[in-house]
């Protein structure tokens, strides 16, 4: 399944990915990470693994984008 993995301790909650995601898969969560930022959560099955969130994210390693393997059910 296509999936965006948010490493919550690296997220600074700037919400650029929330604005950028064309499928609205990313939403500000209610949790707060150890640094004190309200990190973003991934909650959708509409993700196409386009990678836009990865590119707009200003953190170096906060986002990993997984694309579904061939033959895998979406």
């Amino acid at each position: 399944m296509n999936r965006v993995e948010i490493h919550k301790e690296e997220c600074k909650g700037c919400r650029l990915c929330v604005d950028a995601c064309p499928k609205h898969c990313l939403i500000p969560g209610s949790g707060i990470n150890n640094i004190g930022y309200q990190f973003i959560e991934f909650e959708s099955e509409r993700c196409t693994a386009c990678g836009i969130c990865y590119y707009v994210c200003p953190e170096l390693g906060a986002i990993t984008v997984h694309k579904k393997d061939k033959g895998e059910t979406p």
Binding site: E9, V65, H66, K67
Partner: peptide, 29 residues
């Protein structure tokens, strides 16, 4: 499979303020 992840040209951890740190010193956004 992983399509996008932290590039290999970065260190795994950014030990500016002690070991294990993973985020940059840059402000949000």
């Amino acid at each position: 499979m992983i399509k996008h992840q932290k590039p290999r040209a970065f260190f795994d951890t950014f030990e500016r303020k002690g070991p294990g740190q993973k985020n940059t010193h840059y402000c949000p956004g």
